[in-house]
Amino acid sequence: MYKNHMHLEFDSRSENERFARVTAAAFATQLNPIMEELSDIKTAVSEAVTNAIVHGYENHTGTVILEGEIVDRTIILTVKDYGVGIADVKKAMEPLFTTKPEEERAGMGFMFMEAFMDELKVESKPDEGTCVIMKKTIIER
């Protein structure tokens, strides 16, 4: 079984949104994905990291963790923060639901993560933080 792992920690600064998604995409390239799959991964990671920065830490400084794991043909990406957490995860995942309309959050973050990855799991506890786990299988061509 092929296995690989990476762990990245960075400050919750919006400059790092790009850094995180580009890193995740670079890690995924060992599975030889097509451009569209790379773009899916970039978008999903960008959404999760933006959520951690904007909602988890509410634009204050904290640490965001991006973990990448490859098991055979599947990439598992985990984005974790130790921010405010989500009281009602089900509600937060509803399309168009947002707690920050004034910041022009479209309420589509989780919807995009779901659309672009094969699997999405969100674990959260108020005042402890949020962990988003996303999986995508890249078929061999």
Binding site: R21, T43, E47, E104, R105, A106, M111
Partner: peptide, 13 residues
Amino acid sequence: NFMDSSGIGTIIG
């Protein structure tokens, strides 16, 4: 070459 839901929010706004 890249846009996420923040771009969508900006257009809607």
